[in-house]
Design a protein around this nucleic acid. Structure first.
Lengths: 332, 332
DNA sequence: TTGAAAGCGTTACCAT
DNA sequence: ATGGTAACGCTTTCAA
């Protein structure tokens, strides 16, 4: 590998000049600059990033810390962040925490060791409780999950409004006993539960909440229990895509039809939700937008570390499908 | 930030000794070692990775180059690789290429600049054609896609056997006019097509192949055209998860039932394929295993750069569901 | 078993 | 506008 020294020798200039050609070309006389650029091309010179990093004390590198990249939500977000990172010459390091606060901490430490320029972070409830922005040498942008008063940049969905809208839709269709399947571990679940409860209370109805692990299996099991139970709800609301899939599975396994025999709605416009045999009403989260916005906030923050923290709240989009039509609709 | 110098001063030893405590503790007298370890703890010292990298001329860093992390297959593989990387103290850098050979090359170059320890790579057909192992300063492990004679480590599914098995299943059930939806861009599609054709030819039947972009929309459109066409096939085979989803959508939209009115089978045991209303026969790829194996090959290769390249072929698992039962089965 | 010192490749300061 | 040089923090020879 050739170094900046070799380039300098070949171009007949100092290493300083070569460095300048790389970082601030306009500060070098065009003639000299051309010489240097030619030498660079001839040698196939590539800057040594480790040396640059050591000297500058920072790396062109972003961390993405999420619970599990296999969740379609985080996959989309990650894809958006990676696109932005690539465009701006930043690498993206992927970190899965499995909702484990210790692993979250370990990854934050790792990013500090790597002198990352910033970290995009979706904390668990516990991780959020422990988190101190000042403890880390990089800016953090939180996505999807964050407490209301956290003093960091963050990109969130209006979960409360979305859940309220979804619940309102079921109420308007005539459902009265709507049960909620909600995931533990995250703040989003809490907010969605709040929206659901608000919508019910406005009608003087009692909420029925099942808190379960955020997996398809747990969702299916909880939904099956509800459907087989003594006072079966007339509609189900699922607070995320995995729980919704579990609910669909339980409903179909029980031989029930939506919306005729049970109403259904949930979060996340996953690709299978549009299948004619599923056709479930959902809130579509602007997942790519969330990731892109998080990356944008990060780039701006890197540019100006002093700017006041910003909170961006994006709206979910109601995708109205058959599963939330009225209880009588099945006979149409 | 404290450096190795601070630790040395506090422990009353040389920087060399501190370095040794970090990398080969058994070479330092226990008493001294304890002093150093205490100093490290008291100062909260963390090694500077950039300095280490510059000195050692290599980084504890793996690259993962895939077409799109949003594909469930790559998501699972990525998750497995990241797990292994974390366990071995390696970072994982995520790279999406969108099936663009130039972007593939650009990312390979990036990994070279970062002095990555290795790259796990799922090349496009064109990227594979251009690829020269010797051109890169890191070992490569190919996953999912690779030419038969590539002289690099690789982890592949037995695509031909899997497609043959799937087609055989449909044939055994009594289907005779089986059409294949196959994605362009990848070697897997070609291999699966070969398996499909072999199975048909063994029965003296003519193949009917539609090559389309590997997206749900393209799959749905192609399937819809087939179903509405003059000589409609009696069964459909989809060569990956997205095309299969498109096929299911087209079949359900056309008001057809599987297996009664049309047979169906395909690749990838995505979570929605098990829904009672879908219930489609698939080949389940051992996605996590594929990723884990790729990471293992990489670790072994890093350990011993001279070992001969290995090829690991994993078997898909047939998941038999309702959609591939016989044409008359719907009336049972 | 321990230490001194060179050197990895770059950037940034200070001269000129 | 350009160049000399120190410094970033670590590992690795080599010597003791």
């Amino acid at each position: 590998m050739s170094s900046i020294k070799d380039v300098a020798a070949r171009a007949g200039v100092s290493t300083t000049t070569v460095s300048r050609v790389l970082s601030q070309p306009q500060a070098v006389r065009p003639a000299l600059r051309a010489q240097v650029e030619q030498a660079i091309a001839e040698l196939g010179y590539r800057p040594n990033l480790a040396a640059r990093r050591l000297r500058q004390q920072r790396a062109s590198l972003l961390g993405l810390i999420v619970s599990d990249i296999r969740s379609p939500f985080f996959t989309d977000v990650g894809r958006a962040v990676e696109d932005m990172a690539y465009r701006h010459g930043l690498r993206l390091i992927l970190c899965n925490t499995d909702e484990d606060p210790d692993k979250e901490h370990s990854y934050l430490q790792l990013m500090a060791d790597e002198q990352a320029s910033g970290v995009i972070y979706s904390p668990t409830l516990e991780g959020l409780r422990r988190f101190r922005p000042a403890a880390w040498p990089f800016p953090v942008v939180m996505v999807d999950r964050a407490l209301p008063d956290t003093a960091v940049d963050r990109v969130l969905l209006d979960n409360r409004a979305a859940a309220q809208q979804l619940t309102g839709q079921l109420l308007a269709a005539g459902y009265r006993r709507i049960a909620l399947l909600v995931g533990t571990h995250s703040t989003t679940g809490q907010e969605r539960q709040a929206g659901y409860e608000a919508a019910l209370q406005a009608q003087g109805l009692a909420p029925q909440v099942l808190r379960v692990a955020p997996t398809r299996e747990a969702g299916a099991q909880a939904a099956a229990a509800l459907l087989a139970g003594p006072d079966r709800p007339d509609a189900l609301l699922a607070s995320n895509g995995l729980l919704l899939l579990g609910a669909v599975q339980a409903i179909q396994s029980a031989g029930l039809r939506t919306p005729g025999q049970i109403g259904l709605a949930g979060f996340d416009n996953n690709d299978w939700t549009a299948l004619p045999s599923v056709d479930v009403t959902v809130i579509a989260q602007p997942t790519y937008d969330i990731g892109r916005t998080a990356a944008e906030l990060m780039l701006q923050r890197i540019d100006d570390p002093q700017r006041p923290p910003r909170k961006v709240v994006l709206e979910g989009q109601l995708v109205l499908r058959g599963s939330s039509r009225g209880p009588q609709a099945g006979t149409l």
